[in-house]
Design a protein around this nucleic acid. Structure first.
Lengths: 344, 344
DNA sequence: TTCATGGCTGCAATCGTTTGCGGAAAAGTT
DNA sequence: AACTTTTCCGCAAACGATTGCAGCCATGAA
């Protein structure tokens, strides 16, 4: 199993010595340079195969300034959309020979800053980031762009144009679709539970919500709109407040399926019939929203599409040799769809 | 925002030149070496702070043979247990200054082999692996152990002692608890849907299942035991077979919550009352199992505990300078618990 | 035989950081 | 004042792969 007695060097010069060649030639073989004799190439390849030599990426990275590694920052792995995106991105990049360093900021701006520095220290070839809910200032990514490391934002993205590639779901349309759906079902008293407005996705979803309501002349009651981190706990508190005294809302739109689920459970516990007396719409199509009874109407974001677009764009940036060439300045927007279920 | 005109070098020698010092001194300051004059140290630190210099880890890694990076291989991110473990491990290691390269094998042995090589090429300081369901031969990890890179297995682990650290849930006890629970509820005709027996966790869970049944003199019907990948599709096929003709089982134990959920949905669709006519037990405490109606009794594996133990062990191995010192040869076993819900 | 050509290979510098060794300056001792 | 001991700092050689340049050898042409 283990042969710790003999410390294998596993360097190109070991190979060179054994084959009576120069390190240069070995390197050329490994990199498919032309002008290497076929016989030599075969001899080297056979020996490499036999010894299981593997290039030291630190040494080659130091020399070539390429690491074949991409960094990814997400708020949390465990959020359904991110889990899916990560899965897709990891598979896509691996198929093209890239590694992925995945980090989570835990929705902490400080950690996010730290991670940006660390990824720069690792000299990754590109960085993909879904920012914190609270990130307003994006200058901690400057160290990357200044050093020609392309940065690509998705989901939670900078609002002002930042000279970086931006990929996001159509949050405005998602909010609009969800709210319109409720309006068309005849709901007149719609409450909206949103995330904090420091974050583009919640701004856009809210804008869509408001557009749908005003367009159909349904009043927007400010005291029925909540802005807070979208945890189950906060959702229950909001429900408690809403149902403290009449008039009660006849629909709740949540910017999140976690919230929608908590809302539904509160309704079930307190005996509010869903969908008869209260209709519920969530956001993201978390697998749980399909499985709970009644199943929850929600907005599908197609995270695998997002992932595939990210892969395509990041590969484009990597090919373009440093990303100093024309960056796609127009944000790429991934369409969303309403999935109607039993909660409406 | 961007200053691409001036390509910043960001090297230690740039600092040295600017401060009229030698690169050696800068390096010593950055590494907290003693014997640097306090005034010099402060001067350097201030300048480093100002310029935002960040050490190039490829260069330092090349020199020191340390990358401060750990590799992690999992079958799939999206499996609940792994999502949780990854989250915990990433946070834990980041707190100690380590990066994590996360890879998924998609349950393909070939990809797993590829990943082991790639992680070696990156010269990570340690590797954490949850193997494929089908991995019988673990020799593709030899390249790591031979080069003194500690390998730590969890969940899906080698069965023969491998000289590597092993961390796993108490699958035997999990299987035993789940089956005993059914037996104690009076079930006599218990079917078991297992994963393939190439994998330790399914072997152990089955052993626990069998032990519980034979101990209570409940017959183990071979034709009611299924071995296949635990997908929803396969689960439905198994159910179809089981309920093709009497006698019907009065309980189904699934080695997986995905399977348990599919079983429950099949039962709901075909009008089999749960738990009255059919009791169901799952495994892993996937969040969906708690939310579905009726909620599903399952085995909690405490993935955060697993993650914390992994972090502790891997840090121990990293401190021990190459892991050549005594490896914890006894597997570490994380206790499990039965969570009783409405499906039984 | 001589020279030009071109295919193949080696030399040596380079990437940025670390570190053993030795030297210079400062401080302390007699 | 001469000598020893610290204290601090620089020199230069690594680490392993890459690559421009130059050199060698074989081949072909004259």
């Amino acid at each position: 199993m283990k042969t710790p007695k003999q410390t294998k060097k596993n360097s190109i010069q070991e190979l060179a010595k054994a084959l009576r060649l120069s390190p240069a030639t070995i390197s050329r073989v490994l990199n498919n340079h032309p002008h290497v004799h076929t016989a030599t190439r075969n001899r080297v390849m056979a020996f490499v195969e036999k010894t299981g030599y593997t290039r030291n990426v630190m040494a080659s990275g130091l020399r070539t300034n390429k690491t074949n590694t991409v960094g990814l920052i997400v708020p949390r792995f465990s959020m359904f959309v991110h889990t899916e995106v990560i899965t897709t991105v990891q598979n896509g990049l691996h198929a093209h020979g890239y590694n992925l360093i995945i980090c989570q900021s835990n929705d902490s701006v400080d950690i996010e800053k730290d991670l940006a520095r660390t990824l720069y220290a690792s000299r990754v070839d590109a960085v993909i980031a879904a920012c914190t809910m609270f990130t307003k200032d994006f200058s901690h990514f400057d160290i990357l762009t200044e050093n020609n490391i392309p940065v690509l934002f998705y989901d939670r993205v900078p609002m002002q144009s930042y000279g970086a590639c931006i990929i996001r779901g159509d949050d405005f349309r998602g909010g609009f679709l969800a709210a319109s759906h409720l309006v068309q079902l005849g709901c007149k008293r719609i409450s909206y539970i949103s995330g904090p407005l420091t974050c583009n996705i919640y701004i856009d979803r809210y804008a869509g919500f408001e557009k749908a309501l005003t367009q159909h002349k349904v009043p927007v009651r400010k005291d029925w709109i909540f802005y807070h981190e979208l945890t189950a706990d906060n959702a229950r508190k909001a429900m408690h407040r809403l149902f403290a005294k009449p008039p009660y809302p006849d629909a709740i739109m949540a910017a999140n399926d976690v919230t929608a689920i908590a809302v539904l459970e509160y309704a079930k516990e307190t005996g509010i019939p869903v969908p008869e007396n209260l209709r519920i719409v969530g956001y993201s199509n978390d697998p749980r929203s399909a499985i709970i009874t009644p199943s929850i109407t929600t907005i599908e974001q197609f995270p695998r599409n997002i992932g595939n677009v990210i892969v395509a764009e990041v590969l484009k940036l990597l090919k373009s040799d440093g990303g100093k060439s024309a960056v796609e300045t127009e944000p790429i927007i991934i369409p969303v769809e309403l999935i109607r279920r039993m909660s409406t």
